[in-house]
Design a binder for these strands. Structure first.
Lengths: 277, 277
DNA sequence: CAGCGAATGGAATATATGATCCATTTCTGT
DNA sequence: ACAGAAATGGATCATATATTCCATTCGCTG
């Protein structure tokens, strides 16, 4: 009797093998398979007991999984996950510095990815250092008091607004996203009162719809919290509180990372403020 | 008498400490020190016995070496060598601790911001290291050939899709976002042919609308490029090409940074590919 | 619904592994 | 060269860990 003709000795083959068997794996074994591919580092370093606990199975299931694949035990399987990590650190450090330095070898698409990642990281660093605690607290206070939070954004800023609206919904905070360029919006906006609040997001070139709506609402006495990119933004003039977020860009498209982080911070902080109150 | 004030928790500090003490180390301990810095991978994965044999010393010498540096045993020392191999884990761990140093100074909202920023940075690091050049190139090729690119996403993934659609528009690439849960979508989808392509974005818990639509399109022969969070995602099964993006989360909401970066990379790279062609 | 085989949980077990201890050797200073 | 201290080798011990085994549950088929 001979062993499985080619038992994976490297991580990529193992991964392929697992993916191939995925469909016909018993429930718990599939659970282990998913955990293993999602957390390869844990497999490499953990003990059978700790991994089992973390994956929500029994240690014996890990051994069965390894044997099912053809290994003679968990240890043999683990060695594959360890092999993957060997001699990897250099390339990691190299890549980080290479990334900061600029484009290098690899296909063009890789260069683009590096560009977007580094633009995002730059933006995140920037907001971390430039954000004022006082401003953040004030904005949270204003939004936490609002009956309904209107979220105002168009075009490039729209993704931010839609994620905020999604999160507000999950957190059971009443909110209303204003999206269509025309349509029902004017009527919806006329319902807003000073006991509500607005989050307006707009970057240069500022969408007139957002600007006009924000101004109208401000004139109705509704407090406006703005996220924009410059002190000279028209939003900064009408808003009660405004944040300046400097987003780095890549190939003409700005990262939204910092804006997203700020938007989600406001969302979650408002939820926590209300829960504490 | 108190312990060494700052025992190295990361490899670089440990390395510096060893280098500093190198001159005044006893013979066998110096031998271990040299071996450890030359073969860090061995220390990370080997057992005390195997390392000792390989370094030409007794196992007990390894324990003495660790204790001499201030650790309470070989295991503690080894964990430093293991941390080093957890590629991105270390670098984001550094940032996390840096961010966690000041959660008490500053208001709660500041803590939330730190959380979202560090989740984003972690995700960005992760995608940088896990992304395969080959996969990226293949996806770009598929999308560059498409007559119309359909973008499929719901709920949490929707912000990503909307930014992609915005960027495609700016770049004069014909695209169609599929948003409504019902409505016209089935009819729009029936127009898709194998000469088009689909970008589908979905994370656990997977929106059935996205999954079903992706499957239908795949069965029509339309190539599907998927962005999802696990090899076991239903999208991974139907897609021609799929990306696994691990997003860290904060307070239950995942960062979208890495997904955004990937989505924009695909968008811009497709535009460049078409321009070059 | 009954019966069978596969799959699973969990305790028991054999073993591998890190840590301790002491006798011996090797340095160091006088 | 000699005492004393530091360092080292190697056996012993306690424990952590992977593995095995069996009773129970689950899922399927006749």
């Amino acid at each position: 009797m001979n062993v499985e003709p080619q038992l994976p000795r490297d991580y990529d083959s193992l991964r392929a093998l697992v993916l191939e068997q995925r469909g016909e794996l018993p429930k718990r074994l599939a659970q282990v398979a998913a955990y293993a591919l999602d957390n390869p580092d844990e497999i490499a370093f953990g003990t059978a007991a700790s991994i089992a606990a973390s994956a929500g199975v029994q240690p014996s299931t890990l051994i069965r999984f390894a044997q099912h694949l053809g290994y003679d035990g968990f240890t043999s399987l683990q060695s594959v996950f360890r092999q993957r990590l060997r001699g990897r650190t250099l390339s990691y450090e190299e890549r980080l510095t290479a990334l900061r330095q600029g484009p290098h070898e690899g296909p063009e698409s890789r260069t683009v990815l590096n560009g977007f990642v580094s633009a995002s990281q730059k933006s995140l660093d920037a907001i971390l250092h430039s954000m004022s605690d006082r401003l953040l607290e004030e904005a949270v206070s204003v939004l936490a008091k609002a009956e309904t939070i209107y979220v105002l954004a168009r075009r490039r800023s729209y993704p931010v607004a839609s994620y905020m609206a999604y999160a507000f919904g999950k957190l059971k905070i009443r909110s209303q996203i204003i999206e269509s360029a025309a349509g029902l919006d004017p009527e919806i906006l006329s319902f807003a009162t000073p006991r509500d609040a607005v989050v307006a997001v707009s970057f240069s070139p500022y969408a007139t719809g957002t600007i006009d709506a924000a101004r109208t609402l401000a004139e109705q006495g509704v407090p406006v919290v703005a996220i924009t990119d410059s002190a000279f933004s028209p939003l900064a003039q009408t808003a009660k509180i405004w944040f300046e977020v400097a987003e780095a860009d890549c190939a003409g498209f700005r990262s939204l990372s910092a804006t997203m982080a700020l938007a989600m911070t406001l969302t979650v902080a408002v939820a926590e403020r209300r829960r504490d109150a």
